[in-house]
Nucleic acid binder design. Structure first.
Length: 200
DNA sequence: AGCCAGGACTGAG
DNA sequence: CTCAGTCATGGC
């Protein structure tokens, strides 16, 4: 009912958000923009995006923003590079788990993984929870999985809608909307945009 | 000077 | 299974 109306309202207010933001880098051997998105979903966990940008830039400059390099880079070096994005001990492990899983199971690389992996298999990876899994499927794989975050719950609360688990919120949105990846993409980004202007 | 940011894991009860 | 505690940097 009014889930779609809220979307139109947000879109009219803020316009298209054009997620996922990927830095316009020079092409070079082995560089895959989809992998940059995957790295971003890990690094932005409970972290301001401006800090994530610094970390991703460090990775790129060091030549570590690709699957083979991420697999083999020494943990101490990796931690140093991603330090601006916080939680560097945990996130360095998460990045290696992710990169090694791509290397070991997807010959086509990050793009193939994002387009073919199941949500269940993503959730089985250490460091990937429900929001990160859905962000990967939606923003890297262009697949219709609605992403729930704290802003989404805040928006629901403001309209008197409350659920228990992450999956309850996810089902609530997906039942009310068409399974449209492009629209899911904008909707979640718009909710984040909205959330940043709330005082709380 | 705290508080929060585009969360997820762990250990207790 | 539920849930507080923990992790860490940078901006305001």
């Amino acid at each position: 009912m009014k889930i779609q109306k809220i979307y139109k309202e947000l879109f009219r207010t803020y316009g298209p958000q054009r997620w996922w933001p990927v830095h316009p880098r020079k092409k070079r051997q082995g560089f895959d923009p989809v992998f940059e998105i995957l790295v971003g979903t890990i690094l932005t966990q409970n972290t301001a995006w401006t800090n994530v940008e610094k970390a991703i830039e460090n990775l790129f400059i060091a030549g570590v923003l690709d699957v083979p390099a991420m697999c083999t880079v020494r943990p101490e070096k990796l931690k140093r590079l991603i330090r601006p994005s916080g939680y560097f001990n945990a996130k360095s492990k998460k990045l290696k788990v992710l990169a090694r899983h791509i290397r070991d199971h997807f010959d086509g690389g990050a793009g193939t993984m994002a387009k073919t992996i199941t949500r269940e298999d993503l959730l089985a990876l250490w460091g990937i929870g429900p929001e990160t899994a859905d962000s990967i499927l939606l923003y890297a794989g262009n697949r219709p999985e609605f992403v729930i975050d704290t802003y989404t719950k805040r928006l629901c609360a403001q309209h008197g809608v409350y659920h228990n688990t992450y999956d309850d919120y996810k089902t609530f949105f997906e039942n009310a909307l068409n399974a449209d990846a492009k629209m899911y993409n904008e909707y979640h980004a718009l909710i984040v945009r909205w959330g940043k202007e709330q005082t709380v």
